[in-house]
Every structure is written in structure tokens, then in C-alpha cells.
């Protein structure tokens, strides 16, 4: 059998870290590859559906638009009035899907494995907001966008899901989830846009 190896959509960017500059870059880009993603759809007005999902994930689905709910090993993101994205540790999607399939068998609902369709880049550093603001029309100020929220929007020309991360109202970093077909574009866009804030130190790794 041939030797199979997982490769992230941004694998080509890794070598760039070797050229990292000394000092503290204004922006730190870190890819978190191979996370599990599950697209979940169902009727938010159906209490039995919500209870069934909570029984599996051990966290209640977020019902307010553009918010997240964090469980022990799952982040549930509101994607629409009847749609959520579950972000799980690498490999955990298989068991979650099986459990959801069982729990939702009697419901008009769907849980679809979209792992491999996305990758995640974490944007940290003092200039994280300036970097994202170059290609994003959202108000990223802590008063309007802080941990606990999420937003689907455009970054550059790519559609992304933005999740502010950290404690308190001031997000220490932002998770940028992008479709893998746009990952190459977005990786280059981020590196190019980050150049003035930290040069080659800002490499996706």
C-alpha cells in the first residue's frame, strides 16, 4: 500500500516560515489544518431537534444570528436560521456524524461531513484588525465584533467565516475559515497584506 499523507490546502506556505524575521511581527498567521467540519441543518423552532443535538454535542446550538456556542471539543457556529457549522478536533467528525445521524433519524434534519472542504487560518498579533480591515467591510472594533460572535463575510474576494477568539471583549486573534479552493488565494492575500506589519515573519505555518 502506498504511503498516504494528509496535506493541507496551505501546505505550500509552510516553507515560508523558514524565512521568518527576528523580532515580534505585527501579524502572526497560523494555519490549523485538518479540523473536522460538519454542516448541520434543522428546524431551530423544533425543541426536540435542539434537544437531540444538545444530547450529542453537550452544548446547545446558538440560536442568535452570528453567534457561537463552545462545548468541550466542539464549536457550533450560527450560519443561518436553520444551519450551523460544527468545528471539531481532527478526526472527531466521524464519531459526531454517527451520533448525530442516530439522534436525528426521526427528524427532518441533515448532518453532512464537510471536513476537507475548509481550512482555518488564525490571525493574531497587534495589527490583526488592520490586516483584516484591508479586505473586509465589517466593523471589527471590539464594541461590535467580539468573542462569542461570528460572521460570514468577504475577505478580499473570498467568502470566509470570521470568528473572534480570546477572553473578554477584545479578540486576541481571529479564526478565518475559508473554502479550500480559495485557500491558496487567501493565503497569498494574507501574506501580501501582512508584509507591511511583519514582513516574512508573517507566514502561514
Amino acid at each position: 500500500m502506498s504511503d498516504l499523507r494528509q496535506e493541507s490546502p496551505l501546505a505550500g506556505f509552510r516553507s515560508n516560515t523558514a524565512a521568518g524575521e527576528a523580532g515580534s511581527p505585527g501579524v502572526i498567521l497560523t494555519e490549523r489544518p485538518f479540523l473536522g467540519y460538519v454542516n448541520l441543518r434543522g428546524d431551530a423552532g423544533d425543541a426536540t431537534f435542539l434537544a437531540a443535538v444538545e444530547g450529542v454535542l453537550r452544548v446547545a446550538l446558538p440560536l442568535d444570528p452570528n453567534t457561537i456556542a463552545e462545548g468541550e471539543d466542539v464549536t457550533a457556529c450560527w450560519m443561518g436560521p436553520d444551519e450551523w457549522l460544527l468545528i471539531l478536533p481532527p478526526g472527531a467528525q466521524t464519531r459526531a456524524l454517527a451520533a448525530l445521524g442516530e439522534a436525528l433519524a426521526a427528524h427532518h434534519a441533515s448532518a453532512v461531513d464537510t471536513t476537507g472542504g475548509y481550512t482555518l487560518v488564525n490571525v493574531a498579533g497587534a495589527r490583526r484588525r488592520e490586516l483584516l480591515a484591508k479586505g473586509c467591510t465589517l466593523d471589527l472594533h471590539p464594541r461590535s465584533f467580539s468573542p462569542g460572535q461570528c460572521a460570514q463575510t468577504n475577505l478580499g474576494k473570498a467568502g470566509v467565516l470570521l470568528i473572534p477568539r480570546g477572553d473578554g471583549s477584545d479578540a486576541q486573534s481571529f479564526d478565518v475559515i475559508v473554502r479550500r479552493s480559495f485557500a491558496d488565494y487567501l493565503g497569498l492575500w494574507l501574506q501580501h497584506s501582512a508584509r507591511e506589519y511583519g514582513g516574512a515573519g508573517a507566514a502561514v505555518s
Binding site: P65, N66, G80, P81, T137, L138, A151, T153, N154
Partner: peptide, 17 residues
């Protein structure tokens, strides 16, 4: 640029619509 209010997401830039 127009701000358009999505009934779910609130005001967002016209380019998202």
C-alpha cells in the same frame, strides 16, 4: 456604498448581497 439590512445579520455592506 449602500448598507443593506439583512433581517438576520443586520446592516452589511452592499457587496455582500
Amino acid at each position: 456604498m449602500l448598507l443593506i439590512e439583512c433581517p438576520w445579520c443586520g446592516p452589511r455592506d452592499e457587496s455582500e448581497f
